[in-house]
Computed example of a mutant assay.
Amino acid sequence: METILKIENLYKNYGAVKAVKNVSLEIKKGNVYGILGPNGSGKSTTLGIVLNVVNKTSGEYSWFGGKMETHEALKKVGAIIERPNFYPYMTAEQNLKLVCKIKGTNYAKIHEKLEIVGLLDRKNSKFRTFSLGMKQRLAIASALLNDPEILILDEPTNGLDPQGIRQIRDIINLIASQGTTILLASHLLDEVEKVCSHVLILRKGEILYSGEVGGMNSKDGFFELISDNLSDLKVALEQHPAIENTSEENGKITAFTNTNLEASELNRYLASKNIFLNHLVKRKHSLEEQFLELTKNN
């Protein structure tokens, strides 16, 4: 799979403040990547560096396998890293025509991109009449005009109401389904969990986790169990090497694992000890629970 962007051992210092510390990331074509972290974690700084608007202190990054210089590579990148800034007295279509002139893109793309973001019926409306969500959707249309191979979005749902967030999420899913690689910086964990295939979690500029979203969710989990003899069940669970600890409440035992353990394997183990279950459910921690656990010392 083609590498779109490779970041290696990236550092950025602002005086004594280390905004980015040894960040490495490889973005493969066709995936949706999320960068998560609290305010001040280095998300925007990292994006600014690879977009050539912030100077790095040390480390390396390369676009498209290092086959072209950064300024040439960025012609194949669409990005929104600030609030949408269009001419308020011009219509949506007029604003996008101006962007086409700057990018050297054919006007024919405007209709297609407005349709993707659901603004085709408002193409003749002035920008000043748009809601915040519509302004953000127009910015996405603008970033798509050059048919970029990767779309970079920094906090694209900031300040939006639930409907606006849902619309942006649906647009991201649509763009991704058409083969565009996406890099998304956000603190909205639920949204990232719904749209991203991979996640990078930062705290104070350092990587806490990097990998597939599903891989993160399966790092650990827990079982809910009910049996006619809870005391024997609890003893047997605590003897299993994959069970880290247990708790009992309302006639049900919750068993927390320290490694991946399948429900069928646990069921067989308990049956071998003549313990038979009335209830067995395996659950995973949500991305939000994992994130809060990772960043609780922030």
Rank of each mutant, 00 (worst) to 15 (best):
A185T: 12
I102S: 09
V192T: 05
F130T: 07
W63H: 06
I207F: 10
K101N: 14
S44I: 05
E293V: 01
F223P: 15
N297Q: 12
L36H: 15
L233I: 09
I116G: 04
S62N: 04
P148W: 06
L98R: 08
N267M: 05
I168Y: 14
H111P: 05
N258R: 06
K109P: 06
T3W: 05
L153P: 06
T105H: 02
N278W: 02
E115D: 14
W63E: 04
H240N: 11
L145A: 11
G59L: 02
I253T: 13
E155R: 01
Q178A: 11
F86C: 14
E149V: 05
R203I: 03
I7D: 02
K12V: 11
E149P: 09
K282A: 15
I182H: 08
L225F: 14
S231T: 13
I116Q: 09
N274S: 15
L144Q: 09
K103W: 02
F127L: 08
E224S: 14
K282V: 13
N217W: 01
I201F: 13
R203T: 03
E244Y: 08
N52V: 11
G159D: 10
S62P: 01
V195Q: 03
L188F: 14
D232S: 14
K273E: 06
P84V: 04
N245V: 06
E155M: 04
S264C: 06
F276W: 12
S247N: 11
K296I: 08
E191F: 04
G215V: 03
V20F: 03
E82L: 01
T57L: 01
Y33N: 08
L266T: 01
Q290N: 15
L144S: 11
P162S: 04
S210I: 06
D190V: 08
G221D: 03
K219Y: 06
K67D: 08
G215A: 04
N278E: 11
K113F: 10
L114A: 03
L114D: 03
K12L: 11
F222V: 14
A176P: 07
L96P: 13
S227D: 00
T295I: 15
L51N: 13
E265W: 01
H279V: 02
N260S: 11
